[in-house]
Design a binder for these strands. Sequence first.
DNA 1: AGTGCTTATCGTCAGGAAGACGACTATGAT
DNA 2: ATCATAGTCGTCTTCCTGACGATAAGCACT
Lengths: 252, 252
Amino acid sequence: MPYDPSAFPPFAVTVDLVVLTVRRHSLCALTVRRGEPPFQGRWALPGGFVRADEDLAQAAARELWEETGLRVHDPSVPAQDNGAHLEQLATYGDPKRDPRMRVVSVAHLALAPDLPAPRPGGDASNARWAPVEELLQQGGYGRDGEPVAPLAFDHAQILADGVERARSKIEYSSLATAFCPPEFTVGELRRVYEAVWGVALDPRNFHRKVTGTPGFLVPTGGTTTRQGGRPAQLFRAGGATLLNPPMLRPEV
Amino acid sequence: MPYDPSAFPPFAVTVDLVVLTVRRHSLCALTVRRGEPPFQGRWALPGGFVRADEDLAQAAARELWEETGLRVHDPSVPAQDNGAHLEQLATYGDPKRDPRMRVVSVAHLALAPDLPAPRPGGDASNARWAPVEELLQQGGYGRDGEPVAPLAFDHAQILADGVERARSKIEYSSLATAFCPPEFTVGELRRVYEAVWGVALDPRNFHRKVTGTPGFLVPTGGTTTRQGGRPAQLFRAGGATLLNPPMLRPEV
DNA sequence: AGTGCTTATCGTCAGGAAGACGACTATGAT
DNA sequence: ATCATAGTCGTCTTCCTGACGATAAGCACT
């Protein structure tokens, strides 16, 4: 069938971002408050239109930069941590997902170390890190007792998919290091796993596992005591991206 | 920023399909021959425009039906094999991926049992199953000595991504059964793994592994001898979708 | 019937990985 | 000095896997 320009319906294409980080031992996602209808005043995932000359990954990287100031990690420079991890997540195209028009959203997943503060174009009240646990509960109440309004559009589903992707990906890849600063301790890495999975891990077995996996961690020689207690060795992320055998998520 | 209808560029949105099956011990993908430029006469993945009132998954299921006659397996009817497996793969939106206009393609992955023949809208010469090995080699020669023309557009990349998804997913899920008829033997399932991974597996260890994983296989009571040799028990796919522990792909 | 070939299925054994957990070390706080 | 907090090293048991021997049950011949 030939491509007749009048034969296909026009779509708007956007990118939405699931930006995850670990703050205070819990997995948090970046949300922005909507200024206009629909869903005015509700929290939503950051995102925006893909421009006419822009690749999807470029658009996602641009949105991430605009919302957080984060640059995207370039895998061609493996030894240096020069930004966040960004990958395509999934695409959402229900005809009714936006009441105004037909919008197809290509969601992306970004993993970032704990950031000083969101950068909502200067207005801090319009962007915040929220624990995914709060964002995803239906009709519950947040820690401040306020009723939790669900995310705008289908963003709760997108967030849930992004969280699930992150949870499974740190199992068999070294992606958990994307949540850590350039240098980190085994304990800090363990707390990432604990926050993302929502479980407690045995520090001794975890230490044995990660230090015994070739290419996962590279000691930098330094030590730190920022967590209190005995000073811990500092590591960088090694070149390995696939963990074999994988980290094991404890059974339910 | 408000949604100004003139503020976003219009896109065409298509679905492309990576339909995989196992034929004669090798992993094959469905390809269709292009009738018009660009890439006229070249092989491409089946696909088409998403309609105005259609969800992405609906569009993919419709294309699959139109190209193969396959219905999509409905997970709400787990005990019965009522069609192929279909899932979203990834979205491709390079501004130059189609020379005519801006097209964003939401690729889907379908896994199907060996089919009698493609159903190319009635014209068999315009659709065929081709071994992915041939389709993905760059500038090589097929088994008939003919030079292999690469797939149209970015379809080689899409196919490669789909194959990689299938290869990794049968590791930790029961998806390999989607390549099998409703009733199958352990040996037939093993040949699926061998074809998809391109390796040889030990029949004894494989048998122990799959029959020892709870919920993976359900014996139907029957036996068959269609493979020659000693009659083998027949099984259906069990309710389990996640394999824990996973099947292990042999090391390189 | 017997031989050989093929595939299926069961069993055994050694090596490795993981969970449970004891013990020791090195800091800061009181 | 003592305690609390983390980090690190070992040990032991259990389970899983890979390698591979052995047997079973069909079919195609002779």
